[in-house]
Amino acid sequence: MATQPHDDLTETGERRRDFIYIATGAFAAAGAAVVVWPLVNQMNPSADVLALASIDVDLSPIQPGQAIKASFRGKPLFVRRLMPAEIEAANKVPVSELRDPQSLADRTKPGNAEWLITLGVCTHLGCVPLGAGEGENRGDFGGYFCPCHGSHYDTAARIRKGPAPKNLEVPEYAFKSPTSVTIG
């Protein structure tokens, strides 16, 4: 700001002038900051995308031993109804020996141990494992098998062999009724 030497401007006058400049600048800066927010926020998921962030899955058509694939937040979701033998096999494994130690009970809801709900995304590099479809290769442990780099998951969808570091991810979900779950 250019200084303006002026006889009629008193000490207080000078100070008031500075105050006005500062106030104007501060207001403008605040306004600019407020304008930036919608420009940033528009890149967040839109209302129609958020509306699909939670889905309902009907369990009634799934027979023991079967699995279905659904789409959840743009990713595959495996819903598998375990047979008693599979549950038993999963429970037999000593948890402490696993790469990602979790029991079947940790990965299912109490009282609904037969329903194994996981994302169909291999924790290695994000391929979709086989095993949910009829007749697909279920790997050495009868769960899922990722063909990309040979990761084998067991009947609790836990990593047992191959390069994947973690078990298949279990999304947040809740039973609304014995035959219906809400995912997300």
Binding site: Q42, A47, D48
Partner: peptide, 13 residues
């Protein structure tokens, strides 16, 4: 219309 209805602040833009 997607911009007008669903995008955050899209109507304003």
């Amino acid at each position: 219309e997607h911009i007008m209805r669903d995008v955050n602040g899209g109507w304003m833009m």
